[in-house]
């Protein structure tokens, strides 16, 4: 991955003159986290990193800008395979203009989920972390530990179908797979669906009771671009109250769900950012499962596709 990082730095330097800025990653709080970096000059390129901990979906940072500044500002964006699907979806919806984007594709072999490692050890007490021999090796105060990658990567990485970005201008070649044991797509949802509706109701009620309505899931979603004009914020009509109880939180999440039907690319950003660990991406991934089952449509794959709920066939039967 070090090699990928240095080649990435070279490529970013090359395009800096063309763009207003490039969105990439920099070191985070721990050796197991990375955070967004906005690069505007060659000096800032030094801070750029790329490793197995670069989880954030950077497509989020271009989701609205293009409508307004894209006209005269071109930006560079570093995309992993799954992030690129968000970009494709935004292009499809006319939110981004292709000519205003320079997409630098990076190879991904599965990203480590901070939420998952938090359950195993304290990331704040980690001095060093690396992925080697299909294991995550970390140096903790009490010594070195290693964990199976299957246990620490995001669920989405266990069935990844788009390790390579679909639309790119520059592709950095590198390792695309660690030969993780692949699981069936959305197996976690299929598992959850074994429950009876009444049990599921209780499951979600317990989850929504935790929700503090910080709106991080909405703001982190690359496809939630209404932002300041979100239905969840309106008082008239009164879709939901300000109370943070299961009843009102349910409605908030339903508003999001009904707006990403047939659009969610399953990047799991909503789940990654949730401060109270709600497995929230399951809701949105479920909507995509339904549209795949009913309309044989997978969001974020082709720019020229039409989202399934914006079209119809006269003679279709369900």
């Amino acid at each position: 991955m070090k090699e990928v990082e240095s080649r990435l730095k070279e490529e970013v330097k090359k395009i800096l003159d063309e763009v207003a800025y490039v969105v990439g990653y920099q070191e985070g709080l721990t050796p197991l986290s990375a955070r967004p970096l906005f690069i505007r000059n060659p000096k800032e390129v030094d801070r750029l990193v790329y490793n197995d901990f670069c989880a954030p979906n950077l497509a989020n940072y271009v989701k609205k800008s293009d409508q307004k500044i894209g006209i005269d500002q071109k930006v560079g964006l570093i995309v992993k395979g799954c992030d690129c699907r968000s970009v494709v979806q935004l292009l499809q919806e006319g939110i981004l203009k292709r000519e205003n984007l320079i997409l630098i594709g990076v190879p991904c072999r599965g990203m480590i989920s901070f939420k998952k490692i938090e359950k195993l050890f304290d990331p704040l007490e980690t001095y060093l972390a690396e992925v080697r021999d299909k294991k995550l090796k970390v140096h903790l105060a009490q010594g070195e530990e290693s964990y199976h990658l299957e246990d620490v990567v995001f669920e989405k990485c266990l069935w990844c179908e788009t390790r390579e970005p679909l639309v790119v201008d520059i592709m950095i070649q590198g390792p695309l797979s660690l030969e993780l044991e692949q699981k069936e797509k959305d197996f976690d949802i299929v598992e959850l669906e074994q429950k009876e509706p009444a049990e599921l109701f209780d499951f979600w009620t317990a989850q929504f009771e935790k929700c503090i309505r910080c709106y991080a899931c909405r703001n982190a979603c690359p496809l939630c671009y209404c932002q300041d004009n979100c239905l969840a914020d309106t008082r008239q009509p009164h879709w939901l109250g300000q109370q943070t109880d299961a009843l009102n939180n349910f409605m908030y999440h339903m508003i999001r769900a009904m707006h990403v039907v047939g659009r969610c690319t399953g990047c799991q950003e909503c789940e990654r950012v949730c401060p109270v660990d709600i497995p929230i991406s399951k809701i949105f991934r479920k909507t995509s499962m339904i549209t795949q089952q009913l309309f044989d449509y997978i969001p974020g794959m082709k720019v020229e596709d039409v989202p399934p709920l914006l079209t119809f066939k006269k003679d279709e039967k369900f």
Partner: peptide
């Protein structure tokens, strides 16, 4: 520059 990565969610304040 500092605010660029901010998502404007309410986590920090909550």
């Amino acid at each position: 520059e500092l605010s660029a990565p901010c998502l404007n969610c309410g986590i920090c304040t909550y």
